[in-house]
């Protein structure tokens, strides 16, 4: 009898502390453990490592990894290749962002109209996005090689050395590649944003005598602004994180590091050369950079 009397308030107490379905905690536990193991802990480890002279020794060997304060960070700002890789990200963004925003918005507006073959076009523009970078890099290498189709078509005006090993063209080529590969995704994003523009805005514009171009500028462009913010932020994240493209498309960030990316540099210093503490510091700097740029973009694009 006494036990029954005791359990009722206890159940209520548990309910108050853990919610109506405490078993829910058990259900999310594996996923929460995964988030800690694969995101939270490594994030902390990256910050920790970046303050130490953390290098890879032979497995099993006990080595000293002294605390070095901000040394890894000051080294990064004096590292010519790292600075060059940041410059390459800027080149990437300057080409990729305007091209992506302009092309995907125009394409989305066109595909939003009732057109024959609309489904086919959506598929066509989306296919590069679902294909492995490694697979499509193969054909780009062939297309833009010295004796490739593009140079065959261009004849005497073909650049020498060819595109992907040309110091001027290597980085823009990566930006064009990424634009082509990602465009379908952004078109779909804008298509969704277009559905949220009330059609009476277009009606009002046409009553006021606005043509197609005017209503595009004054109704469509402001109407999809949140999507534009998202596109710019996602492009920044992609730009700060590409690896496969400089590694394979331009033969390891070449020529002369003219297309090296921060992540490729991180891979070389951290994993090839074993200087993991330094590579972790680059990772932390990159993350901070991406967050700051995203916030600034958001602020600029969404002010009003």
């Amino acid at each position: 009898m006494a036990t029954i009397a005791a359990t009722a308030p206890r159940a209520r107490r548990i309910r108050r502390a853990l919610g109506r379905h405490p078993v829910g905690l058990l259900f999310v536990l594996p996923y929460a453990a995964f988030l800690v193991l694969v995101y939270a802990y490594p994030l902390g480890l990256a910050v920790y490592m970046s303050f130490y002279d953390y290098f890879f020794a032979a497995p099993g060997a006990v080595v000293e990894r002294p605390f070095v304060g901000f040394d890894n960070y000051t080294t990064a700002f004096g590292d010519a290749i790292f600075l060059e890789s940041l410059g390459n990200v800027v080149t990437f963004l300057v080409i990729n962002v305007p091209l992506t925003v302009a092309l995907s918005l125009v394409l989305a507006t066109a595909l939003n109209a009732k057109l024959p073959l609309r489904g086919f076009f959506r598929t066509a523009y989306y296919i590069p996005y679902v294909t492995a970078s490694v697979a499509v890099i193969g054909v780009w290498l062939w297309l833009f090689s010295d004796t490739g189709l593009v140079n065959s078509a261009l004849g005497p005006v073909a650049p020498a050395p060819p595109w992907l090993v040309n110091e001027f063209w290597a980085m823009p080529m990566i930006a064009f590649f990424a634009t082509w590969k990602q465009l379908g995704f952004y078109v779909v994003l804008y298509l969704a944003a277009l559905q949220n523009i009330p059609s009476d805005l277009y009606d009002a514009a046409s009553v006021d005598g606005a043509g197609a171009l005017k209503s595009f500028r004054h109704v469509t462009v402001p109407g999809v602004r949140p999507a534009t913010t998202l596109v710019v932020i996602l492009s920044t994240i992609v730009g700060a994180n590409f690896f496969t493209e400089p590694y394979l498309l331009t033969g390891g960030g070449g020529p002369n590091n003219s297309s090296v990316s921060p992540v490729l540099h991180m891979y070389r210093r951290g994993i090839e050369q074993g200087d993991a503490g330094y590579a972790a510091a680059i990772g932390v700097l990159l993350a901070i950079g991406v967050i700051v740029i995203s916030m600034v973009n958001r602020f600029i694009l969404e002010r009003d």
Binding site: G24, V28, L35, V38, Y41, L43, Y267, I271, A276, G283
Partner: peptide
């Protein structure tokens, strides 16, 4: 289900959608 910590887990989940894998590459 209604349980304590649901909001925290959901927000953590949204947060990891934007953490780029490359940042975690070295520690992982």
């Amino acid at each position: 289900l209604d349980f304590r910590g649901r909001g925290v887990i959901f927000n953590a989940m949204l947060l990891v959608l934007i953490v780029p894998f490359q940042l975690l590459m070295i520690p992982l």
